[in-house]
Design a protein around this nucleic acid. Structure first.
Lengths: 135, 135
DNA sequence: TTTTTAAAGGAAAAATATTTTCTTTTAAAA
DNA sequence: TTTTAAAAGAAAATATTTTTCCTTTAAAAA
């Protein structure tokens, strides 16, 4: 169990019940879109405003606590920032999973080919997850 | 010079002046967002509707003629579909470039780690382009 | 502890973005 | 040529995101 209160403080964000709920949800789901986040939070906070969700997600993204993940043909999802990783998206069940892989080789190769100094990579792979494949 | 008329026909899309302009623009820019596409097309077709742009981009994407490229912190851009490639985005000048790289190794590794059967990869790398770096 | 205050929440409106509807126009088949 | 199915354009509808403004509250200061 993580200490989300400390995490919010570390990012200079006031600790509010709504914020704790948002970050708890992000962590529990791994990845969640705005719409689903709003629906779920409204179960516990019936008066929460969609603007609160948007404002918080924006602040948390700005502060580096949260990351937006843009996925082809799906709505953006959000995740609590952690070590660099790739995203796997299942074409059947549409779940999004993280995997950690060494990307040094391909980054190095890309720098060589492009002449860019690469700061960050965003890698999403789509296909069929093991569960859907074996159904 | 490419034959966009033939390309549209191949995708069972009626050849209209607006469509030819859209696909010509996409090809000329490499990557362009809806807003810029609309502005530029309106120079030649002052009465073109934004709905026409959206409807066509949607159809062309559906038919596989065009690809949407979702890029972190930028608006989506569109490109004429071609061989698989990576996207490089410059943090300074925000240009988007394609590079072709062999990704077999990392895909294979990802399949091993995740158990997924991967169908397609989306790789975007952000950093500083050679031009901005040497300024 | 209270008091103070700067930030956050909520409601509504505004701004943006995208899609749909409906009528007119047009590319292309007959 | 006609015919017709699809596309264009205009406007309205819908969806998404941001802003505004007033109230509430977390947390710093007294």
């Amino acid at each position: 169990m993580e200490d989300f209160t400390a995490l919010l403080k570390k990012h200079n964000l006031k600790v509010t019940p709504q914020r704790l709920k948002i970050i708890t949800m992000l962590h529990a789901h791994g990845h969640i879109n705005i719409e689903d986040l709003f629906s779920e939070i409204r179960e516990e906070f019936p008066n929460v405003s969609l603007a609160t969700i948007y404002k918080n997600i924006h602040q948390m993204t700005e502060s580096g606590l949260v990351r937006e993940v843009k996925i082809p043909s799906l709505k953006s999802v959000y995740e609590v920032a952690k070590e660099p990783h790739l995203h796997m998206v299942c074409d059947k069940c549409h779940k999004v999973e993280d995997i950690v892989l060494d990307t040094d080789k391909i980054i190095e190769e890309a720098e060589k080919v492009s002449g860019y100094k690469i700061e960050e990579s965003f890698i999403t792979l789509r296909g069929i997850c093991p569960e859907c494949r074996h159904k």
